[in-house]
Design a protein around this nucleic acid. Structure first.
Lengths: 332, 332
DNA sequence: GCCGATTTTGGCAGCGCTGCCAATCTTTCT
DNA sequence: AGAAAGATTGGCAGCGCTGCCAAAATCGGC
């Protein structure tokens, strides 16, 4: 059994107490339509006296319009999604929208199930990470008629709105930067790419760029789990165990790169002279370590904000490229 | 204007298509009550054919029971709350509950407004951080009749359910640990304590413990902004500028402590011989740095999980102490 | 093949609010 | 003062679903 509410004050009771009609109370409370100043006062007094809290469930049903925005994100422990959620949440709050979320754990099947559960709330919009959805998910979203926002990726075809940046471009520019600095024997340390397809896109375009330069990737180490500092450390340790003459390593993101950085610190490998390190995301912590991390800063909070704004303002379908910024730190 | 849905399939249409009554469809879909196997098949076929997605708004209204759980948290960029949210979200998902959230930015007035907005959704429970709420918030929550869970703090009186651990005990044990290691000239670097009252509790009981030992806190530096690695670095730099003979520094949390650690690394201050560092939270990254951070590990994910379980299982009012673990790293 | 017990069903009144429309009250203008 | 134009109101039918209850179908045993 679900939780059953104790009897609460209803709009009808407020109307009764204020000696006005229900619709009048509704108008006053939503500040919509016209009513006199004294009516307003009487209604507000009754609301105050009875401690009335409007029932949004009923309101949403009656108006068949929704101010819910559903987020279906891969993970919350990954700061990236927390940032996006935070950025979007702030904008939605200002506009009296409500954010609902669920976490897929990078599992497409789970994404489909959760998206379906979300649609049952008849949200104004559903926000998801990236373009890689099951066919069922895509079909369901299209049929739902609600707005769909795909976040943090622009390499693909959007269902409706897309906000983010190109991961392929990020991979490409990372490679170009390292090549420009003269590094030639480059390795890669990453986490599970089947699940994090955006990291996969970065990696493949990174490799293509190296190939085009005639200096293909020398070695890579891919760990099964999610990205983490510890996995980054471990990954670099393993990579260096057999690829002994690397001059630079590209990491799937800053968490991993920090792990690599710490490994070097602990092993006395000097950065960047012996080994250069390059990350992805531009986390704040990367700027606070003794040698600021060379990385690409992504507009995570802005992605959430813009996405929310587009929904709130009922913008037409579009893809918004927020770009990213390459940060020349001290590690590469 | 809010988003208006395109006409969707309703339960009545499914009933019509399947040639059964509405209540029968409802029973089959919720797997509740009795119905024959062939009826089930016919209903499911119609559902499939029409692409029916139940409307939870209507269902919730009709049943006056809710499977929404509202989170009112101070911040999402602080990993602590993201962890709690993640832990709770997983459990709620399994039980077909839905998480809704909003972010107060550590502002009690905003918390009150957001709590009110949340109650309008008639959630089964509201989860908040700690005990420090405005009187209005407390009154509203009590009157709502919905379950209330206060998280991450046990030093105070719970409105209904509390899940977490004692921040005062954490502060005390941190002090005792440092004293036990022989440190006597101890300083503190923290972030805005008026807003983060849990950090405030740790700090005050930390100081009390030092006082009781006859070796009061030597110096402290409190930064205005939120906790961050950069603020930790800056805070320690400032502290050491005038408190030159400290032998240990207690930080308001691991983010700050990491900043301090990096400052020492960059300045060639050897840890812990010249200066010991102690944090709070037990973030993973603290274990991946060359010298594992000495800190207190808090059960953040478990806090969320347990809180969600108590709500799902309709547990009676109670305070659950999940404790914490002091980690003897290499920095103190 | 009939009767009571049990399982399946359908009908329909709400859940609490909003949207629409008609009714009432004020103003304003001639 | 009388009429037209506006400004305020209240009534009430839903929004789509669930809960309750009675009706219909099925079952079992003699």
């Amino acid at each position: 059994m679900e939780f059953k509410h104790q009897p609460t004050v209803t709009l009808a009771e407020v109307a009764e107490a204020a000696g006005v009609g229900e619709s009048t109370v509704s108008r006053v409370l939503r500040n919509h339509g016209s009513f006199s100043g004294k009516t307003r006062e009487r209604v507000m007094a009754a609301v105050e006296r009875l401690g009335y809290v409007p029932n949004r469930i009923a309101g949403t049903l009656a108006s068949t319009t929704s101010r819910l925005v559903a987020f279906v994100i891969p993970s919350l422990s990954n700061i990236v999604f927390a940032d996006v959620l935070g950025g979007a949440g702030a904008v939605l709050e200002e506009n009296r929208y409500q954010a609902v979320f669920s976490v897929t754990d990078y599992d497409p099947a789970k994404e489909e199930a959760l998206a379906a559960a979300m649609l049952a709330w008849r949200p104004a919009a559903v926000m998801l990470a990236g373009y890689e959805h099951t066919e069922g998910t895509a079909k369901m979203l299209r049929a739902s008629g609600c707005r769909v926002v795909e976040l943090l990726d622009l390499d693909g075809d959007a269902l409706d709105i897309a906000v983010g940046f190109s991961n392929r471009a990020a991979g490409r520019e990372s490679a170009a930067f390292l090549l420009g600095r003269g590094y030639r024997r480059i390795g890669y340390v990453g986490h599970d790419l089947n699940r994090d397809t955006r990291a996969g896109k970065r990696f493949s375009s990174f490799c293509e760029t190296l190939d085009a330069n005639g200096t293909p990737l020398v070695a890579h180490e891919i760990l099964a789990g999610p990205s983490s500092v510890e996995n980054g450390r471990l990954g670099l340790e393993r990579l260096l165990a057999w690829a002994t003459d690397l001059d630079a390593v590209y990491f799937s993101n800053d968490d991993m790169a920090l792990g690599g950085y710490f490994h070097c610190l602990a092993q006395g490998i000097s950065i960047p002279s012996q080994l250069a390190i390059f990350g992805y995301n531009g986390l704040d912590i990367g700027r606070a370590i003794p040698q600021p991390l060379s990385t690409i800063r992504t507009p995570r909070v802005a992605t959430g904000e813009i996405a929310a704004q587009l929904i709130v303002s009922k913008a037409p379908p579009q893809a918004v490229d927020l770009g990213f910024e390459l940060i020349e730190g001290a590690t590469a």
